[in-house]
Nucleic acid binder design. Structure first.
Lengths: 241, 241
DNA sequence: TTGACAAATCATGTATACAAAAATACTGTT
DNA sequence: AACAGTATTTTTGTATACATGATTTGTCAA
């Protein structure tokens, strides 16, 4: 085993297995055989099982009564619920940040991120930059209230299947209608942060919830208009209904 | 290894280690040495490490940068936040149950549980029965909206350190003032469920949040009046601050 | 041909072995 | 006596071995 790989076999297993699962590489309902999977990923069963435990926790895998795991399958309603939960938790982070006052250093960075987001959405859209800045916005929002427990749980909700703030950004650059949705999202970003600064907790919470709903709207749009794109959205391959 | 033990070494490791941690059996900040711990629990490092991973996830342990874990330590604020989050998630479960309509079978059981709770809080208090019924109330509430994802996340929030609905019931039977708090809690239980049946989502959510606040009130009371009881509340031993 | 039972194979859960990295103890120097 | 550097001992992360229980395959009877 060379030096590079030894960084962490577990991390490697987690990342690669997650991406395999999200790609829909496994037949739905079938058990994931540990031995062959470990061979395929070039590591032993020990870190692989660790990664599987973690993915069970994330909800991507589910345990089989008689042992082992299978890929979980979701209904569209499950994904809607996951998005709803993300909205609820981000809303709580926003409310608490408003009530308690935002952590100054993070608030400072937030203004920079918002300015940068404005710049990348108009007049032309720099999609790659938007995705990265959007991620930072949501990460800052999670931590803005200064509570490590709140931050942890918000970030966990972001990892629920297909609930991530960036989940539906995949493929949006190919759909013109979605560019508007990014501008709308940025308007909401600003509104959320302004409410926080104004110490308007209830408003900040409601706005953050509504912001998550944008993902639901986009999901509905994709399923209705461009179901062929469903495969591009991480996690949507797991939707069996 | 005999037949009994083979049920699951992992489960055994998880339960025993969690209870050791909650008891405050480990010096705060010190690394938990895997080998000696495994010996102590009578199992090998493999299931022990699995259990440690899980407890990291629950927030009871935290990872050390250079490897291994230590017992996490919380501030009182962290525990308040954990309770707040439980309220938020139970509030969401209540709201969604109201908006979507409660699952009939669970709603039916809920009425039975509420009647039983009425019976155990007056005229005399059957404390043991109360704890068990209270647990069932919260379990039903989590599942009432009929969403497995919501149920999962609500139940997860209930496992946050010292956030469980039953955490502060320990020792309440020894404090007369707390008997009233149980009756108040039961009034809230009824109100939450009535709001759900009346499809009053916002009210159900607000009531469930407020219900969780009772735990905060009790926590504050304990810390102010009977700090000696702090050791009896699971998780409070980890509060360093 | 279908179904049930038995044998064999396979997969999981657990224990253990091993190597690399941390932590600790030690030695020699100033 | 204090400190730097080194050797030693732990300890972790990973691989592998092993046994029990699950699953599949094969065989035979109806």
């Amino acid at each position: 085993m060379n030096r590079q790989d030894r960084k962490t076999q577990f991390t490697k297993a987690l990342i690669e297995l997650r991406s395999l699962v999200l790609d829909g590489s496994f037949p739905s309902g079938a058990r994931l055989p540990e031995t062959s999977l470990a061979d395929r990923l070039g590591l032993s069963r020990t870190p692989l099982r660790q990664a599987m435990d973690r993915l069970v926790d994330e909800g991507l895998l589910e345990r089989i009564e008689t042992g082992g795991c299978r890929v979980a399958s979701f209904s569209m309603a499950d994904i809607m619920d996951a998005i709803e939960l993300r909205g609820v938790l981000e809303g709580t982070a926003a409310r608490l940040a408003a009530e308690r006052g935002a952590v100054p250093a993070l608030a400072q960075r937030m203004t920079e991120v918002l300015d940068a987001l404005d710049a990348v959405v108009s007049p032309e859209l720099d999609f790659r930059a938007y995705v990265s800045l959007n991620e930072e916005f949501h990460s800052l929002l999670a931590r803005l209230a200064g509570s490590s427990i709140v931050a942890r749980e918000v970030e966990r909700a972001n990892r629920l299947p297909a609930a991530s703030p960036t989940a539906f950004l995949q493929g949006q650059d190919t759909i013109p209608d979605f560019r508007d949705s990014l501008r709308r999202a940025q308007t909401q970003h600003r509104a959320i942060f302004e409410a926080i600064l104004a110490r308007e907790g209830a408003r900040a919470e409601a706005l953050a919830r509504e912001h998550a709903r944008l993902a639901r709207t986009n999901l509905e749009y994709v399923m209705r208009e461009k179901p062929s794109l469903a495969g591009k959205v991480p996690g949507l391959a797991l939707v069996a209904d």
